[in-house]
């Protein structure tokens, strides 16, 4: 269902005569790929290596990097309580926001898939927040909504709950506002779920209802299992994305990490270290740690997937 390397299939398409005709294409390939190759070396691979090197140095941008061995990593893992806090904040954010977001996305996709009139419009309306979600305008709005005199308190007042709490000002709740923002933008995974739902053969449902299975039963026995590859896809995507959250945290947290650093997501602390405190080496170490964590989490997800993802072509 999900495509992989093209080589597996392209060789099957070529006849022996065609393949030999194609071999001198190395020169052409180089030509076509040259922008990408340059980009890869200069903007990706080079910086990657350089940042690894930097992570072992003390570099403040004004003087040359000083080699300090594993100093940054030691400080990060054992000597920096703020770093630890940013890890916790990010972990909580990912662990709570992603499942919630996917749950809503799946729920809405299922509901919308029932052949309702005007599906395109409903779909567009539910997608709209996602479209705007990453903009700073929305983050500013969010700060307002959850302020002491903001929309949320107004709405609560309308239903009889008196509240003057500034939700973004209170460290117990502030991360929740950030999480809510992500959950609000469930449009993209929802659309992917919709596409996936459409691909489930109708016959399966028909035969199930002929056997007397109700809607809920059909959902759990047919829809969900058939959807697991899509759930997996969305999960990987959203987790990787959630680990890198920055803009909304920056704005909603007021440029710092919010009260008591309760909204200090990892990338925000990284930004502070690099661009406020001029500790480029330390920030590079932080970045590599993030890379390793994302890689590990993705790997674990892949490994776990064999237990719950059901591919229909296996």
């Amino acid at each position: 269902m999900l495509s992989g390397l093209p080589s597996r299939t392209s060789t099957t398409e070529g006849t022996p005569k065609a393949t030999s005709r194609r071999r001198p294409q190395g020169k052409w390939a180089l030509l076509f790929l040259s922008p990408w190759i340059v980009g890869l070396l200069v903007f990706t691979a080079g910086p990657l290596i350089a940042s690894l090197y930097l992570s072992f140095t003390d570099y403040d941008l004004l003087s040359s990097p000083q080699w300090i061995g594993s100093g940054n990593y030691t400080r990060m893992l054992t000597g920096d309580p703020v770093w630890r806090q940013s890890v916790v904040v990010t972990a909580v954010y990912v662990a709570v926001a992603v499942p919630l977001q996917l749950a809503f996305a799946l729920l809405l996709a299922t509901v919308l898939n029932r052949g309702i009139k005007g599906m395109t419009i409903w779909r567009a309306l539910y997608y709209l927040p996602s479209l705007f979600g990453s903009s700073i305008a929305i983050a500013i709005l969010w700060r307002q909504i959850f302020g002491a005199e903001g929309l949320l308190n107004n709405v609560l007042g309308m239903i009889g709950i008196e509240s003057t709490t500034s939700w973004i000002g209170d460290p117990h709740w502030s991360l929740g506002t950030l999480i809510l923002l992500r959950v609000w933008e469930f449009g993209s995974p929802m659309i992917i779920f919709l596409a996936g739902l459409r691909q489930i053969p109708a016959e399966l449902y028909e035969s199930a209802s002929l056997d007397g299975a109700g809607a809920v039963r059909r959902f759990f026995s047919i829809t969900l299992p058939m959807l697991t590859p899509i759930v997996f896809f969305n999960l990987i995507l959203q987790v990787i994305n959630a680990f890198q959250v920055f803009g909304s945290a920056f704005i909603i947290g007021g440029g710092h990490g919010g009260p008591g650093n309760s909204m200090l997501v990892y990338t925000l602390y990284l930004y502070q270290a690099a661009f406020n405190d001029f500790q480029m080496g330390y920030a590079a170490a932080m970045a590599w740690f993030l890379l390793v964590v994302i890689g590990a989490v993705t790997a674990v997800n892949f490994w776990l997937s064999r237990y719950w993802v059901h591919y229909s072509d296996e």
Binding site: S51, Q244, A274, L291
Partner: peptide, 16 residues
């Protein structure tokens, strides 16, 4: 490279 987080390359890119 599609899966690489931007933060790993951003600092050397910035220096460059």
């Amino acid at each position: 490279t599609v899966m690489l987080p931007a933060q790993v390359t951003i600092i050397p890119q910035y220096i460059l």
